[in-house]
Amino acid sequence: VPQRAWTVEQLRSEQLPKKDIIKFLQEHGSDSFLAEHKLLGNIKNVAKTANKDHLVTAYNHLFETKRFK
């Protein structure tokens, strides 16, 4: 089981690129989880459509539901 890579403050910070969060989610989330949160596909394309709040919610949801690969 992966550990949380970032704190809530870090997740919301401008310093953390959306692409980093997407990469983490794609590496650790199950396909059904990723599909549900519309996070499947090319990281660049996902970054265009997903806002930061959406990614933070998905990140927290992944750990709450433990839907890891």
Rank of each mutant, 00 (worst) to 15 (best):
T49Q: 07
F68Q: 04
P17E: 11
V56E: 07
Y59V: 03
R4S: 08
F33L: 05
E64S: 07
L11W: 02
L39M: 06
A50W: 06
F63G: 01
Q10K: 03
H37W: 10
G29W: 01
R4H: 08
N45A: 14
N45I: 15
A58M: 06
I21E: 01
H28L: 06
L55S: 01
S13M: 03
A35T: 08
A5H: 15
E9Q: 03
K48F: 13
S30D: 10
T65P: 03
K66L: 10
K23Q: 12
T7W: 04
Q10C: 08
F24D: 01
L16Y: 04
P2G: 03
L40Y: 10
K44D: 15
L40E: 09
F24K: 02
E27N: 09
L55R: 00
L11H: 01
F63Q: 02
W6N: 10
T49S: 09
H54C: 14
R4F: 12
V8C: 15
N42D: 15
K69V: 07
A35V: 09
L55W: 03
K23A: 11
Q10L: 05
L40N: 08
K18P: 15
R4T: 05
T57W: 09
E64F: 08
I22M: 04
D20Q: 09
E64C: 11
S30A: 10
A47G: 08
L62H: 01
I43W: 11
E14A: 12
T49K: 07
R12M: 15
A47N: 06
H54S: 11
G29R: 00
K66H: 10
R12T: 13
E36F: 10
D20I: 12
A47D: 13
L55I: 07
H28K: 08
Q26K: 06
A58Y: 04
F68P: 03
K18N: 11
Q15W: 09
V46R: 06
A50P: 04
E27M: 10
D20C: 10
F63K: 01
E36S: 07
D53Y: 06
K48I: 14
F63T: 02
G41H: 05
I22G: 00
Q26L: 07
K52S: 04
Q26G: 02
K38N: 11
Q26P: 00
I22T: 02
S30T: 11
L25T: 00
N51Y: 07
T49V: 11
H54G: 12
I43S: 07
T7E: 14
R67M: 11
I22R: 01
F24Y: 08
Q10M: 11
N42V: 11
Q3A: 09
D53N: 08
V56Q: 02
K44T: 14
Y59D: 01
E14I: 07
Q26M: 07
N45R: 13
Y59S: 02
A50L: 12
N45C: 15
V46N: 05
R4Q: 08
N42G: 10
F33P: 00
D20L: 10
Q10R: 02
R67K: 12
I21P: 00
L40V: 11
Q10N: 04
Q3I: 12
Q26W: 08
H37V: 06
K18L: 12
D31R: 14
Y59E: 01
N51I: 08
K52F: 07
T49P: 03
K18S: 15
H61S: 13
D31Y: 14
Y59M: 03
V46S: 05
E14M: 08
L39Y: 01
I43K: 06
L55D: 01
P2S: 04
K52R: 15
T7M: 03
H28Q: 08
L11Y: 01
K48R: 13
D20G: 04
T65M: 11
G29K: 00
H54D: 13
E9G: 01
E9H: 02
S30Q: 11
L39P: 00
Q3W: 04
R67N: 12
H61C: 15
Q10F: 06
F68D: 03
N45P: 04
L55E: 00
I21M: 03
L25M: 06
H37C: 11
S13V: 02
L25N: 00
T65N: 10
G41N: 05
Q3F: 05
R12Y: 15
K44Y: 15
K38Q: 12
V56R: 03
V56P: 01
Q10G: 02
N45K: 14
K38W: 09
N42Y: 13
V8I: 11
K23P: 01
V1C: 15
I22N: 00
K66R: 11
Q26C: 06
L11F: 01
L34I: 06
K38V: 05
A35R: 09
F24M: 04
F63P: 00
T65D: 08
D31E: 12
E36I: 10
A47I: 12
R4V: 05
K18V: 13
N60R: 05
N51V: 08
E9N: 02
D53G: 07
N42Q: 12
S13D: 10
E9I: 03
A58R: 01
L11M: 08
L34W: 01
G41I: 03
A47Q: 14
K23C: 11
E27F: 07
Q3S: 08
P17T: 08
N42M: 11
E36N: 06
A47K: 13
F63A: 02
T49C: 14
V8L: 09
L40S: 10
E14C: 08
Q15T: 12
F33N: 00
K23Y: 06
H61G: 08
L11V: 03
A35I: 12
I43Y: 10
K44L: 15
E64K: 06
L39W: 01
K69Y: 07
Q26Y: 04
I21C: 01
N51E: 14
A58E: 01
R4P: 15
N42H: 12
K18R: 10
L34G: 02
I43C: 10
T57F: 14
H54A: 09
T7F: 05
D53M: 06
Q15R: 06
A58S: 08
T7Q: 05
D53H: 06
G29P: 00
H54V: 09
L39Q: 00
H54T: 11
E64N: 08
L34Q: 04
D53I: 05
K48H: 13
K52Q: 05
K48C: 13
N45T: 14
V1I: 12
E14S: 14
A47M: 12
F24R: 01
E9M: 02
K48S: 13
H28R: 04
F24E: 04
D31A: 12
L39G: 00
K69D: 05
N45H: 13
R67C: 15
L55Q: 00
E36L: 10
E9T: 04
G29Y: 01
L25Q: 00
K44H: 15
Q15S: 12
L39A: 02
L55A: 03
R4M: 11
Q26R: 08
A58G: 02
H37L: 09
A50K: 08
H61I: 08
S13N: 06
R4N: 12
A47C: 11
G29E: 00
T57M: 13
K44R: 11
K52D: 03
D20A: 07
K44W: 14
H28W: 15
L16A: 06
F24L: 03
T65F: 13
P2L: 04
I21H: 01
A50Q: 06
E9A: 04
H54Y: 06
Y59G: 01
S30E: 09
V46E: 03
S30R: 05
K44V: 15
N42C: 15
A58I: 15
T57G: 06
V1W: 14
